[in-house]
Each structure stands twice: as structure tokens, then as C-alpha cells.
Design a protein around this nucleic acid. Structure first.
Lengths: 133, 133
DNA sequence: TGGCTTGAGTTACAATATAACATAACCTAT
DNA sequence: ATAGGTTATGTTATATTGTAACTCAAGCCA
């Protein structure tokens, strides 16, 4: 039997996948209130924490938001590009960037554990046809 | 005459430099309460915002904290390495990483505006002599 | 000087996150 | 099967981070 926690994680992940865009923890909370009227923030944060550990969800540090991971297989750190116009996020894998980054910080003896790489800008759709102005 | 706002920015920057470590906006607020008993959050956030625009201060997105910029001259995006053990932050400049990163996200037509590159891990001091266990 | 413009000060609150404790589920040995 | 121990989840309350919106003061210029 699936534990309640796994159930919760599945529901949180479903919400993130359904919406596809970055959602705040409270956005997720709001969606799940329909099914679980008495749900509280720690439940959401715990589910998000477990999903992050399992590599199913990214936290966008510069937005305080969460998004379902797109590519399923790799466990590498990703480069997340965030369109400041339409809010869409793309995930790229760039092993060479990670390696070079480790070299750079390793110069002073630093041992990397987690990489946060977020690029803000304008996506091709928004940059190509800026519908007005 | 220096405007009140510039005065405020100078005081905020002085606090960040004096402490050297990442401080939350409210840490700064606490320090400045001594001199300005009635100071309020928006004053701090406005000063921090102006200092960031002027390139004097980094925001550590993954910590919700702020730190004075170390290298003074360059305006490039920096790589910030954050020791999760002792909290110290180092700033590195790595133009090649930025360029490669722009290439990677540019593949799909994305135009970068701002880079957030933060590496969590263990600094040389903490990794070299883990004083206990 | 008196109105206009700009930006800082202030109040109040919104949004994000977690500590701490209560409860429920599960497991193991008897 | 159940009592006792263990772990995970639910719940309450609150801590932390950030901002909207308004008030007031300073500088500017006719």
C-alpha cells in the first residue's frame, strides 16, 4: 500500500506537471485545497522536499517557486532558463559547464555539493514576436 | 550634500562589509536599529535594491541573504561559492563559464539578462580540518 | 512664495517557510 | 492479535522575508 506521504507527493507532483509553470508552495497548496480542505503548509513543504530529494522537482531559488522536472532520467544539476516575460522555464543539461564551474571554485579548495544555475532573460517566443511595444 | 537615501545606502553597505558574511535584510535592519531606532523594512530593501543596481551588493538567491561585493571593479556576473558549514562566501569571476552558459541557453533562442550562479559545498578551511567527526 | 515633482518615511500587511508538538500508521516480538 | 516502540504525518502557531500604498519632506522652478 502506498503510504499517505507518497500519495501526497504524487498529488503535488501532478499539480506541478499539470500547470507546467513555476508555482509557489502556496499555489500548490491552493490547488490541493479542493481535494484536501484542511491541508497545511508543512504538508506541502515536506512533499516538495521529498520530491526534490528524489529529483522530481526543481526549486527555482531566484523565484521561490517550484517546477516539475522535465527530463526524467539524469540526476545532474540542470541549467534553468527563466523567461521574465512569460514565466516559462527550460531545463538544459550542460555537463561541461558544471565541470568548469567545479574547476573554478575548486581553485581555492572548495568542494561543490550542489549547483544553482539559473539564467533570467527572454525566451525565443517572447523575443521573436513582441506583440506590442 | 549627500541625500538621505545615499546616506542610508552607505550605512547598509558598511554593515555588510563589517560583517563580511551573508546577512538577511532583517539582520541588517537589526544592526541599524542602534543608530536609527525607527527604521523599517522598506528602507532596508530600497537601500539593498539601489546597492544591487550599483553593483555593490550581491543577493544570494539560495539563502535569501545579501553580501557586500568583494572585487570592486568588474560588473560581470559572479560565481558565488557558499560554504554550508561555516557560511563564508567567495566570489569568482569566470567569463568562460558565462559565455558557455549563454551558448547553452541560446540554443533554444533564449537571451540571457541575468545569471544566478551559486555553488553550495564545503570550503577548504572546513574540508581540510574537520575539527570533530 | 507656492505649487509641482520626486523620492524617502511609515504603516500595514502579504507571501514564504519552519519549529514544535499531537496524532496516526506501521512494525516486531511475543 | 496486540502491546510497545518507532517513524511518518497532521496540526497549530509563529518566524522570516518582502512589498503595496500612502504620507510627508526636500528640492526645483515659475
Amino acid at each position: 500500500m502506498r503510504t499517505r506521504g507518497e500519495q501526497m507527493q504524487a498529488e503535488v507532483l501532478a499539480v506541478l506537471r499539470r500547470r507546467g509553470a513555476p508555482l509557489s508552495a502556496y499555489d500548490v497548496l491552493g490547488e490541493l485545497r479542493a481535494a484536501h480542505p484542511k491541508i497545511a503548509p508543512p504538508t506541502i513543504y515536506r512533499a516538495l522536499g521529498a520530491l526534490r530529494e528524489r529529483g522530481r522537482v526543481h526549486r527555482l531559488e531566484s523565484l521561490n517557486a517550484y517546477i516539475a522536472r522535465q527530463g526524467s532520467a539524469h540526476q545532474h544539476a540542470s541549467v534553468l532558463s527563466i523567461c521574465d516575460n512569460c514565466g516559462t522555464v527550460e531545463e538544459s543539461v550542460a555537463p561541461d559547464v558544471l565541470e568548469r564551474l567545479s574547476q573554478v571554485v575548486g581553485q581555492s579548495g572548495f568542494s561543490p555539493v550542489r549547483h544553482v544555475i539559473e539564467v533570467h532573460g527572454v525566451c525565443s517566443a517572447c523575443g521573436a514576436g513582441p506583440s506590442l511595444a
